[in-house]
Design a binder for these strands. Sequence first.
DNA 1: GTTGCTTCTACAGTCGCTGTAGATTGTATC
DNA 2: GATACAATCTACAGCGACTGTAGAAGCAAC
Lengths: 152, 152
Amino acid sequence: MERDLKSIGALSKATNVKVTTIRYYESIGLLAEPERTESGRRVYGKETFERLRFIRHARDLGFEIDAIRELIELQSSEEQDCSHVDGIARRHLTGVRNRIEQLRSLENELERMLDQCRGGKIEQCAIMESLADHEHCISDQHEQLDIRVQPR
Amino acid sequence: MERDLKSIGALSKATNVKVTTIRYYESIGLLAEPERTESGRRVYGKETFERLRFIRHARDLGFEIDAIRELIELQSSEEQDCSHVDGIARRHLTGVRNRIEQLRSLENELERMLDQCRGGKIEQCAIMESLADHEHCISDQHEQLDIRVQPR
DNA sequence: GTTGCTTCTACAGTCGCTGTAGATTGTATC
DNA sequence: GATACAATCTACAGCGACTGTAGAAGCAAC
């Protein structure tokens, strides 16, 4: 199927994955090394296109690279029962739910903080007090909470 | 108040911030360079202890280092009105809420995927199909969604 | 004196990319 | 054929907020 061969740029557009990211996936072994033209440019077939679409979709769902690597390995062992796949997805879902819970308690505390602020000078700002205040300290309640809001 | 002087280890325990992290905060200018003993060890007073507690609390609430830097600067301009502080917190709250929404839609899609799986072999696994399937592709709907679930 | 803990500096590694520099190749237009 | 511009190539640095490592030195208790 010679007509399906794509340059890296065409593959990028078709999958909505950036060119640099495709090269990155190759460098970490998530994508196989593709064939090259005489001048050394990458050429991709339909298989890579579909694998990349799979990867993109899994990344969109928040699966980590290592989990995707595992899923791809499992893909080739078609005979096996899919409880392993199910387990990976279920673990991930649990992670997502935990994260939502964490963020919800952040949301509550931030709301509480903002409600207390009635304007005025920084010296008496309720938000600043709240941040300096030992009483509301989250880290005393649960040891190492993961707190980053904006990933990537 | 000589009796309040702490070693880096003592400060670490008192604030629940790791020793390496305290040194890191110093290196990025979030904490001032402390005094040293004759042999070169860091010695901290009550001020640093309180600033570090402030930082820790703000980090627990998910504020980024740069936002914390700004909050600390505002702290010293006590005369100013606190609308700037309020703005920082409000922006952050909006970020948290957006993130929760993103994660909820991930949660939904993952649940849907898992519900479809009825066991069996990987070849016909609904989860795998769903991942390979173009139809459910999130990235076609909204361009660059931020998807990492487990930060740090 | 010796064991074992803390601290020191300096630097590499984490994750998942993204951006840069400088060179080459390919395509379209004049 | 010349020229302009886009796409691609490699190699490496940078992001954020730390964490971990190596190797040396200091310090306290037995």
